[in-house]
Design a protein around this nucleic acid. Sequence first.
RNA 1: GCGCCAGUAGCUCAGCUGGAUAGAGCGUCGGCCUCCGGAGCCGAAGGUCCCGCGUUCGAAUCGCGGCUGGCGCACCA
Length: 548
Amino acid sequence: MKAHDTIRAALVQAAARLGVSVTASAVELERPRDPAHGDVATNLALALAKSLKQPPRAVAERLVAALELPPGPVRKVEIAGPGFINFFLAEAQLASVLEAILAAGERYGRSDPGNGVRVNVEFVSANPTGPLHVGHGRGAALGDAIAALLEGTGHAVVREFYVNDAGTQIDKLARSLWARVQQRVGRDVQVPEGGYHGDYLIELAEGILAREGRAFADLPQEEGIGRCRSIGVLSQRAEQDEDLREFGVKFDVIYFESELYRGQLIERTLADLTRRGYTYEQDGALWLRTTAFGDDKDRVLRKSDGTYTYLLPDIAYHRHKRERGFARAIDVWGADHHGYVPRLQAGMKALGYPEDFFHAEIVQLVRVMRGGEEVRFSKRTGDFVMLRDLFEETGVDAARYFFLMRRGDSQFVFDVDLAKSQTEENPVFYVQMAHARMSGIFRVAARDPAAVRADGTDLSVLDAPEEVDLMKELAEFPRVVEGAARTLEPHRITGYLEGLARLVHAWYHKYRVLGEPEEAARLVLAAGARQVLANGLRLLGISAPDRM
RNA sequence: GCGCCAGUAGCUCAGCUGGAUAGAGCGUCGGCCUCCGGAGCCGAAGGUCCCGCGUUCGAAUCGCGGCUGGCGCACCA
């Protein structure tokens, strides 16, 4: 908002007059919780107290005395509490946010601090060994929202999914599937130890036999397992893609581990690490000196049997991201992998990459509750609850919203009954309903809300407390988006939307729009509120329905 | 044993990188439907911010030491 910039600049100038050099971005402006403390406040005097060796209030007095604000946006400046400087904005300033919203439309809330920086966001990256479960769903919702937040703040984002199609897990999948094929033709073969026991491989085995004929089961074992490997990976990948598509997540790049081997990227990475002096041989294995970067112990890159551990391909993969020109690589990982962060980070530093290149966002596990009881297992996989089962029951919007409404790093209980309920208790419903209500006004008025403009409308009649509060909240949206993007915390958006929806409902309930003397101005307010609700929901990948 | 994450109202959780009297929803209690959707709105009660020590003008927030819970600590992925 323009008033913020004006205040910021004036404060920087005032500080300079006191002999302190402050950058504009270092001046913190916030909206006080208590309206009696004004519309904008800064703690600048408190922050400068130490270096000036003066009491905060005295610093505040001097700052205000040195402050030169152009006439217009600010009508009053106060010093309060321990030394806060509070600014009170002119009323006209407040309503101008509506003009800004309607002029920007879908773009309201977007900003450009990212300045076109290229960011790779990798998430889900499930092994192609079975269906996606709810934990993947939380990662999918979070990764997609983080990507959208970064896009909304001016970053060039690529959404990426990494497929481990070359490891031992894939061998287990192939052998498990082969065993199921044998079982279906009546042979007494067991699914191997540590293999995949879920019913979905029985279904897949039946499909193979139906398509290929019984002769498939009589293939030589090596060939049969090989066929099972490619069929298994392809079918699981296809199924995961379909789940993700229906969940509303679209990836720009699907990267297969096997591509790393084809491009000699593993060997090149190993050569880099060695050339930089961070590898050594011991006990027949090749080690990476990760302790040089804060890891507990050094890690093996190449085992004594000559094969690679998981770490080396992963370093190679992230090196490849760097080579593709990304300034940042953000990975969304499940909590069960968090112990892995220090060694991959060490790998990045061993390659000489800056500290902030790689960042792992850890997502804690999800528990699912229904009817007051925990739902642990899915029949089909014999394991976790499947993502598909969840969103088919609750709807995609509710599932995504619920995954996003808590910080990723806190454990989360998904209440299926709440997600399905069509009442105010359900936050998704509550927020979407606020949007639908605003749309309803325009439906009755037979107007297109997207075509509403503030030009020439007298907005000074929007002076009821509920209307003032609503406009102030609408003005906060761009800052909320920026904060959420900076901290990679989409839950700030859901929290904001719930607060905004509350104000919208309260306003709607108390004041009529159509047929009132204030109709024109209130239509502008309704259109603005509707736009911000829609923009917030869209950012999270959730629909903004016009009626429910 | 070591590491990471969490511990805030009866419950689920926020708390904007150290600021003003710690907030919201649900639940509880009490009000409100001639209406653009009551599928909603308004109000009240409710706190040892896990405990202790420290850092400073100021700590839920930072540091140290404990306690509780989750997850990790492979030449697995």
